[in-house]
Simulated assay, not measured.
Amino acid sequence: MGECDRDELREVSEAVLAVTAHLSVREVLQTIVSAARRLLGAQYAALGIPDGNGSFREFLADGLTAEQWRRIGPIPRQHGLLGAMLHDPDPVRVADIRRHPSFEGWPSGHPEMVDFLGVPIVDGADILGELFLANKQGGSFDADDEELLKLLAAHAAIAIVNARLYERSRELSIVEERQRIARELHDAVTQKLFSLRLTADAALTLIARDPARAAAELDVVRRLAAEATAELKSIVVGLGPVDLAGDGLAAALRRQIELLERVQEARVSLAMDPVPRLPAASEEAAYRVAQEALHNALRHAAATRITVELRRTPKGVTLTVADDGRGFSTAGRQGRLGLISMHERARAVGGRLLIRSAPGEGTTVTMEVPVA
């Protein structure tokens, strides 16, 4: 086996192993796209996953410069050959893409492409996306190239299916948790509140003609109210993030970011130092602050990039969530409910919250949490 063959096998192995590594699905797919371009000697490679609305939820490319990306503009729509491949399970291999019946041209800033090889990413009868190459260096794409690209597309399908299964398992967990809470509310709290109301009604009817019995009934009201409060507290404790109890704040944040990477268009990244375990209340507060900051960035700030950092400091741990969204003027905005909640969570565990933002300049939320 030649040195070149060994290099190709190593690159295929790296691409395959990336599917099972602890990477986000976007990183796995980018690894496969880059490996496909290098292995098959193409100038350009790309992978698209449709969004169900005529465009692409993910569109990754390799071989393009930042300037070329800028000239191309927005993510392409599902038209022409890209759209046709999402409805046909057969590979497409042509010497000149411009002569294919489905070709409809490209934007003015798009690089010139001639020979083309594309394969669908399939799971059974479902087409999940497409992987394609253009401009073979030193020749044209052949049957061997097609077989290798189909292999890499199969591994891309594994990554996509795994991501969808993970998301469905999370959704099922949420549904199950809601059902559990509903059962507990019905079995415990609802019944106690019903008894409390009946007892209060009885006390009201007795207060004029039998004050002693009315007082006894009010004692029962007090006891039932205390029991209902205790039941509610126990249920609220059960609502805490499940990930925190076992693996800690760092692992919970990592899972949250991986989930957002799968379901959001914005790029969300995580950088962490090895951090010590914090008291349970501190980890819960930090996790909830991170959730609130991420929610604000994704839902209100229209951010395209969000960075979450968890750093060790001499006195404890610092959590930072920074986005490139529209930002806002902090003057007079500290009274917003979400901001109040984050400040209160930080103060409750002896920490401090800082918010930096300005219109058009994004937002940075920093929470400092002491170890002790």
Rank of each mutant, 00 (worst) to 15 (best):
E3T: 12
D5V: 06
E14Y: 01
A15V: 01
V19I: 07
S24F: 01
T31Q: 14
I32A: 09
V33A: 11
A35N: 04
R37K: 15
L40K: 05
A45C: 13
L47D: 09
P50F: 04
G54F: 12
S55H: 11
F56I: 00
R57A: 15
E58I: 15
F59C: 07
A61W: 02
G63F: 03
W69S: 05
R70N: 05
P74L: 09
I75V: 15
I75R: 13
L81S: 12
A84T: 00
D88F: 01
D88I: 11
D90G: 12
V92S: 00
V92C: 02
V94W: 00
V94S: 03
P101Y: 06
S102G: 02
P107T: 15
S108T: 09
H110P: 12
L117Q: 09
G118R: 13
V119W: 03
D123E: 11
A125L: 12
A125C: 02
I127F: 11
L128E: 08
F132T: 06
F132D: 12
G138F: 07
G139E: 01
G139P: 07
A143C: 04
D144E: 14
E146I: 11
L149Y: 04
A153H: 06
H155C: 00
A156M: 12
I158L: 15
I158W: 09
I160E: 10
Y166H: 07
R168C: 07
E171D: 12
E177M: 06
R178Q: 10
Q179N: 06
A182R: 10
R183Y: 09
L185K: 02
H186F: 08
D187K: 02
A188R: 15
Q191S: 10
K192P: 03
K192L: 15
L198H: 14
T205W: 07
L206D: 04
L206I: 04
I207K: 13
A212E: 14
E217H: 03
L218S: 12
L218A: 15
V220S: 11
V221P: 04
E227V: 13
E227T: 15
L232T: 04
L239R: 02
L239P: 03
G240L: 07
G240K: 08
P241Y: 00
P241V: 01
V242Y: 04
A245V: 02
G248A: 06
L249W: 05
Q256K: 13
E258N: 10
M272C: 11
D273K: 10
A285R: 09
A286D: 05
R288T: 05
V289D: 06
Q291A: 14
E292Y: 05
A293R: 03
L294K: 04
A297G: 14
A297Q: 09
H300L: 10
A301K: 02
A301M: 11
A301Q: 13
A301L: 03
A302F: 15
R311D: 13
K315W: 01
D323Q: 09
Q334S: 15
G335E: 13
R336V: 01
L337N: 03
L337H: 03
I340D: 00
I340E: 04
S341P: 02
A346I: 06
V349D: 09
G350V: 00
G350Q: 05
I355H: 02
I355W: 00
R356Y: 03
S357N: 11
S357D: 10
A358C: 08
G362M: 13
T364C: 11
E368M: 13
V369F: 00
P370E: 10
V371W: 04
V371Y: 05
A372N: 08
A372F: 05
